[in-house]
Design a protein around this nucleic acid. Sequence first.
DNA 1: GTTTTCATGTAACCCGTTACATGATTCA
DNA 2: TGAATCATGTAACGGGTTACATGAAAAC
Lengths: 222, 222
Amino acid sequence: MSRRSGILEFAVLGLLRESPMHGYELRKRLNTSLGVFRAFSYGTLYPCLKALVANGWLVEETSGGPEDVPATALTGRRAKIVYRLTPAGKEHFEELLSHSGPDAWEDEHFGVRFAFFGQTSRDVRMRVLEGRRSRLEERLEKMRTSLTRTRERLDDYTLELQRHGMESVEREVRWLNELIESERAGRDQRAPEAAAQDEHNQSGDTGGPPRHRGGSRLDPSE
Amino acid sequence: MSRRSGILEFAVLGLLRESPMHGYELRKRLNTSLGVFRAFSYGTLYPCLKALVANGWLVEETSGGPEDVPATALTGRRAKIVYRLTPAGKEHFEELLSHSGPDAWEDEHFGVRFAFFGQTSRDVRMRVLEGRRSRLEERLEKMRTSLTRTRERLDDYTLELQRHGMESVEREVRWLNELIESERAGRDQRAPEAAAQDEHNQSGDTGGPPRHRGGSRLDPSE
DNA sequence: GTTTTCATGTAACCCGTTACATGATTCA
DNA sequence: TGAATCATGTAACGGGTTACATGAAAAC
């Protein structure tokens, strides 16, 4: 009980699903792989892990200390605590994955949800992407009307800030358009279970993901 | 004392500097003019206003109730409370404006700072813009190195998320480049005082602001 | 051998929201 | 006259950080 963050819980379960990890490593993955969006501190992560254990979604496995000494025994040498997802935890995560409610496409949640699209069924992916898009479009609408009403009273800097903000949103909408189109074109209707069992889904374009036009900007040879 | 938010305090002082307002109106301005970035609720705003009054930076002026009844007398008809900036408050705001420390160009602060660039001296503007740019560039650097290290292990969706994130940051850097260049080209070294006294600085290109290339995207005729 | 990085945790605090309570004014 | 919007406030909670305390292993 207590301290369930929603987004952090989701991300932790998702990462641990791939492989067991201890807290320190988990945090690094959180702030790089999924990063840019959120950066959690230990003060958030560790209590959350304890809560997830209390819920039966994770188990602690000590490694490094004497074999049968439980992790709670802080006497003597401190052991690394490796967290592993339980079947109940996996089940819970899959239920979270299947939800595509309004909060899934809010600013805070969308990034994390997207990061786990590889585990998400395509219809849920579509609903989340389209939900986010219409969310952004209604935001654009508000910005536009508020602009036409207040335009004269704003100085040039405020105006430029507004303009840049709108352009950013418009840009994300275009990005979503491409993603949605790409999803529609894809053939692979992969369910979460299928993705989990399949150990080597590297080969063969199975349809889902973006494959960005114009050569990968990811290439660091620049 | 208590509850001084920094960014909210700054924005409130800045908005009240232009003209006195009551809380409700203040909040709307906060969420449109400066908006997109932050949306404050009354539960944040009103306590903050009280704190600013306690600091001597604002005064409450009741309008609507009997003349000499103080705002604290909640008996009978409730009055609108108009907040006005005191000389001390103005002084304080100008001191805040002159600061260009590291926090000025963090994500949360930068937007608000930029919104009040019209009141900010050019050298401070430059420092803030350049500070933000180098902040973003070091963030890009981190993202690039973390990418080259983890690239193989990431699925395509995570990769695309990362790519889009980096592109967003790169885009903001280009925006900053243009702004900085525009600032360098400008002639007007306007001090905060000058801008405040000058009631009609609409006419004549005084140098500062952006004047975006390629026609205003603000035009809603679309 | 000492500094860095890895590793786990807690208590105090901070900034903000939600939900609620209250009432005035405007408009259909 | 009743609904919408304007207007002001508070208490409870939520989700997070900072600073601190502690110690092992690795790198220099």
